[in-house]
């Protein structure tokens, strides 16, 4: 069976319909100044013309606030509350596909939960997925991948579930021609040229970052940080959460709720007895870089930064992931000493 197909633009609604058996479908739509993933049923609501959504697709996979169980305050009988069925994520850029892959290494059940359709994109000045090794769908988690061409899509298949969908679309799609595959190659080539050039790929720096744990740079750069937590809240791979139990007013049942938190909040490192493991701003600031670039790599064999640029784009004081790393790795002359 061929693995690349051509779907005309007019067939997008059919694709949307054919995915309904996998669960509710979320896709990028315009809201305010940007784009957000929202549940849609009509292909005409979908807008692929975006660089990054405000929140990553993580918001459906690991909801920011989720009820996970209920128990009776006396009998203590606990009933877990499961996630309501599957979900289809349509229109996910390669960085976010890798973000899902990272999350799935921590939460394996996510692999089964979502049917994921990737889509091609063009970078802006904050994107550095090329450096992070996550600019392409390969080695990430996806079922189908669409490359936008004039008038239609090249459709690639990434899983057995994806093959099933292609079968359903027979009649609407046709095999991609060699010319179309050539056009796709050209597109990827042009896209690659659009990234800011860097001398050292991020993927190869975790040991250096670890070695620079005591660098003065952390103290210095963290001075501007407001500790708002935006950088982790918008990140496709951050998964930290806390939980609490809330009784109902009648005293009949207690709900257990998990919610996203951030290592940028002092409370994140607060333990019983009032001790903070990361009492200073610079320790909290450093922790994020350290966990993403060193910690994740050791934990799941893949860095926790996929270069989506959200943390840089949304930081209210303009702290940029890539600039912090450049300052850390270059200004101290690390590259010259080797």
């Amino acid at each position: 069976m061929r693995i690349s197909w051509y779907l005309p633009e007019t067939g997008l609604q059919d694709l949307v319909d054919s995915l309904s058996s996998f669960g509710r479908l979320a896709a990028p739509v315009r809201r305010g100044d940007g784009h957000v993933y929202e549940f849609v049923s009509s292909a005409s609501d979908i807008d692929f013309n975006f660089t990054r959504t405000k929140l990553p697709p993580k918001k459906f996979l690991l909801p920011y606030k989720r009820m996970v169980g209920v128990y009776h305050p006396e009998s203590m009988d606990y009933t877990p509350v499961g996630n309501e069925g599957g979900i289809v994520l349509l229109g996910v850029h390669p960085c976010d596909l890798h973000g899902i892959e990272v999350l799935a290494r921590f939460f394996p059940e996510l692999r089964e939960k979502a049917f994921v359709v990737g889509v091609s994109c063009l970078p802006d000045e904050h994107c550095f997925c090329l450096d992070a090794g996550s600019a392409f769908a390969e080695s990430a988690l996806f079922d189908l991948f669409l490359v936008l061409l004039e008038g239609g899509f090249l459709l690639f298949v990434g899983s057995a579930k994806g093959i099933g969908v292609v079968e359903k679309l027979k009649g609407l799609i046709r095999e991609a021609t060699e010319e179309e595959i050539f056009l796709c190659r050209k597109f990827l080539e042009e896209r690659t040229k659009l990234f800011r050039k860097r001398t050292l790929p991020l993927a190869g720096t975790s040991l250096l970052i670890e070695a620079l744990y005591h660098s003065q740079v952390w103290e210095e750069l963290s001075k501007d940080c407001l500790g708002c937590g935006t950088c982790t809240n918008v990140c496709p791979t951050c998964f930290c959460f806390a939980s609490y139990d809330v009784p109902d007013i009648e005293g009949r049942k207690v709900k257990r709720v998990e919610f996203a938190t951030s290592c940028q909040y002092p409370v994140h490192s607060l333990v019983a007895g009032g001790h903070y493991f990361r009492p200073s701003l610079s320790e909290r600031f450093k922790h994020r870089y350290y966990h993403k670039l060193v910690g994740y790599t050791r934990q799941v064999g893949k860095a926790g930064c996929v270069g989506c640029g959200r943390c840089s784009f949304f930081c209210p004081v303009g702290i940029r992931m890539e600039e912090v790393l450049e300052r850390l790795l270059y200004d101290q002359g690390v590259n010259h000493r080797c």
Binding site: G34, Y64, N233, T261
Partner: peptide, 15 residues
């Protein structure tokens, strides 16, 4: 659980 207003604002996907 002391977080920031930004936490809730970003999660609501406001501009």
């Amino acid at each position: 659980y002391p977080m920031t207003v930004c936490h809730e604002c970003r999660i609501n996907e406001n501009d």
